[in-house]
Amino acid sequence: MEKTWNNKAWFMVLPVLVLVAFSAVIPLMTVVNYSVQDTFGNNEFFWAGTDWFIQVLQSDRFWDALQRNLLFSAIILAIEIPLGILIALNMPKQGLGVPFCLVFMSLPLLIPWNVVGTIWQVFGRVDIGLLGYTLDAIGVPYNYVNNVFDAWVTLIVMDIWHWTSLVVLLCYAGLVSIPDAYYQAAKIDGASRWAVFRYIQLPKMKRVLLIAFLLRFMDSFMIYTEPFVVTGGGPGNATTFLSIDLVKTAIGQFDLGPAAALSIIYFLIILLLSWIFYTVMTNSDAQS
């Protein structure tokens, strides 16, 4: 069925468009402006062309950070999506357990990023943190400040703890929309638990999974607050992701030009990858 046509709708959307223009488009243009010029303060600008872009793309620092980002997002997606599906599948579909589970699942989502970071920073400390102290007591060497592996594990566990709920809630919404008749038909057709998942639940969750995948990818790719709070990008540069690198460049070194160029490259990478994921996933949908 088609949508109702209504020209007035555009007027309704106008305030949002204005807001978006001020909050996103204008700053973005400013960034574009910075990225092609050089400045030494005093509001004096010199044309730099693509110099900053070339500098960024030729720096090892950029490629190293990008690699870390990609690795981090890949690990996050590989764990959170299946784990989210698994939890959603095992959540009760009716009864008193439903509101309880939903509230429980929503709790981590309600905590601000920096608080999450602080919680885990304290939680993992060997001297006063419950986790760090316990691990130390049972003889597991754990130190996210010095050990690269431990730092990564901490960040990943933290992200999983914080965001798997989002995947769970989305998948759960997809699952409860499946009519009962499908499960009954599957029982009658003698389908195994796996077949029910593969041929009924997974296809019906496809759309929400696409959304979950994109959201988790974009969010994890832009991760900043948690590593900033917990590891500060260390040990060494082990957890210096593009976002942290960007802030170091822009604020730490006040290299506005390269920082602006880096932001634009960063933005384009996210856009490109999101577009690729979206196209690949919706295309496989269209073929079926």
Binding site: P179, A181, Q184, A185, I200, P203, K204, S288
Partner: peptide, 9 residues
């Protein structure tokens, strides 16, 4: 059933 139940994929 009353409404078609098919395996979409």
């Amino acid at each position: 059933f009353q409404f078609p139940v098919i395996y979409d994929t």
